[in-house]
Design a protein around this nucleic acid. Structure first.
Length: 484
DNA sequence: TTTTGAGTTGTTCGA
DNA sequence: GTCGAACAACTCAAA
């Protein structure tokens, strides 16, 4: 029997359109599919709690699919290079196939692994399984990476279809001898004592099949009205693809193809517009992934280094109030509680809560990024850091410093009927719409009627919007003047 | 090289 | 209630 190949799954937990899987299966050689829980290699950031929950279920789903193809999934834990070496010794494998990652720590590690493999006469092949295009192929006319989104996206659109998706192989040969595997339970990825994952279980079903179903559901329900609907947090107007994309349960090429196909079938210009608007959001993911490749320090360092001098406020109480959804601003609190409960937050509200942290509270964006990293099921190093830097004003193509979201107006504009706030902040649900987003302005009689005692049953605002806005403008303004 | 047009998501003020 | 201007220049990307 020929020597097997190792198929190394990372953040590509799917069978369809998986280039490394397709290539490994196509060799006709036996394949050892493996997932390595690597929390110890240099620079690897430990997974957040919500991500660990998702990973457990996504791996369970992947294991089913891989077994069905014919070769069971092997689970191992430890530094990836040593684990792979060990597996090669056990199985006599002639090489390793994988799909690429683009964060600095993964690139360092994978480059070293590839060199070691090739140095010892083995095969090491990597593929693009998570981007429309490889980051090094999208360049300006002068050969530099794009740092502004719109021209970046135009350049991608000019390339047309990002390419065919891979066929799912019908089978994968197993090695002669079974390979030892950890069990998922060995890894204790799920929370116990306490089990806080009830809200996640209610909302999500990780795995490739669900990702495909969810995409179709989105096409059939929310996409036609995406232009407006995606901004209403109380409605199901967004695609909910983010965690599936992060773990590679679906590829952006599949989303591109299916969305284009959907729009063509409709033969309506409105459908085409909606499809373009949605793919543009996929474009922002692509943009952040490319930026992370070109600027490895994105997660740690201000892109605009003038911000290194910004007088961030160190306030543990304010940070905790923000984290727990007790700021006294209903739209902010609703978002933070949705995040805590479900591991996800509506995009519109992410902007509001992020702006509130870095501008109203002037707390460093990295403290917000840390919290999101731990609580989001879609936590992604590139998207998370890129978007936080964008809100803070120090990132690529960033929001101007004077753009400060008004949490009252945002609530009134995008949660007009109060459905979102009433769901997540039930203690003020009986307030009429008029005061729902600013309970402190409600007449005393109304508050009493609604069973609300501000500062007791629901917090008073921890900062005054107008004053906090002015302080932020002054601080950002000073930064500009000091540096120029 | 110089010039030119353009740039995710907002808020406030005053007419 | 609605509308336009100001916010602040600055940098990018392409011609």
């Amino acid at each position: 029997m020929p020597a097997p190949l190792i198929l190394w799954f990372r953040r590509d937990l799917r069978l369809s359109d998986n280039p490394a899987l397709a290539a490994a299966a196509a060799t006709g050689d036996p394949v050892v599919p493996v997932f390595i829980l690597d929390e110890v290699s240099n620079g690897v950031r430990p997974l957040g709690g919500a991500s660990r929950w998702w990973l457990h279920h996504s791996l369970a789903s992947l294991a089913n699919g891989v077994s069905y193809l014919g070769s069971p999934l092997v689970l191992r834990r430890g530094p990836a290079d040593a684990v792979l070496q060990q597996l090669i010794e056990e199985t006599g494998a002639k090489g390793v196939f994988w799909n690429r990652l683009y964060d600095a720590a993964s690139i360092d590690r994978d480059t070293r692994i590839k060199q070691d493999l090739q140095g010892s006469g083995r095969v090491a092949e990597s593929f693009n399984g998570s981007l429309l295009h490889e980051p090094w192929t999208i360049k300006t006319k002068t050969g530099k990476p794009y740092s502004v989104f719109t021209p970046f996206w135009k350049a991608i659109l000019a390339l047309g279809d990002p390419g065919a998706t891979e066929q799912t192989p019908e089978q994968m040969k197993a090695p002669d001898n079974p390979v030892d595997s950890d069990t998922l339970d060995d890894w204790s990825l799920l929370p116990t004592n306490p089990d806080w994952a009830g809200g996640l279980r209610d909302m999500w079903k990780p795995g490739e099949q669900t990702a495909q179903i969810q995409l179709r559901t989105f096409h059939d329900t929310a996409l036609p009205d995406y232009g407006d609907g995606r901004d209403i947090p109380g409605a199901n107007g967004t695609s909910m693809m983010s965690p599936h994309l992060h773990f590679g349960e679906i590829s952006p090429r599949q989303i591109w193809r299916a969305t284009r196909f959907w729009a063509d079938a409709k033969e309506l210009s409105a459908a085409s517009g909606a499809a373009q608007a949605y793919l543009r959001e996929i474009g922002w993911r692509e943009f952040n992934q490319h930026l992370q490749f070109h600027f490895p320090n994105l997660p740690a360092q201000n892109v605009n280094q003038r911000f290194d001098a910004f007088p961030w406020v160190d306030d543990a109480d304010a940070l905790a109030a923000w984290q727990r959804g007790r700021t006294g601003y209903p739209i902010v609190d609703a978002g933070m509680r949705e995040l805590w409960e479900t591991g996800w937050m509506h995009n519109r509200v992410r902007m509001v809560v992020a702006s509130f942290l870095v501008k109203h509270l002037r707390i460093h964006w990295r403290q917000g990024e840390d919290w999101f990293w731990d609580t989001l099921v879609d936590a992604d190093p590139a998207n998370n850091a890129g978007n936080w830097q964008w809100v803070a004003g120090c990132g690529f193509d960033a929001a101007p410093y004077f753009r400060i979201f008004n949490p009252i107006l945002q609530g009134e504009r995008f949660d007009t009927d109060g459905r979102y706030v009433r769901r997540w902040v039930p203690e003020i649900a009986d307030l009429p719409d008029k005061y729902l987003h600013k309970p402190w302005e409600a007449p005393a009689a109304l508050l009493e009627e609604a069973g609300i005692r501000l500062g007791d049953t629901y917090p008073s605002p921890i900062v005054d919007h107008k004053a906090a806005r002015q302080t932020a403008l002054d601080a950002y303004g000073a930064l500009k003047n000091a540096a120029s």
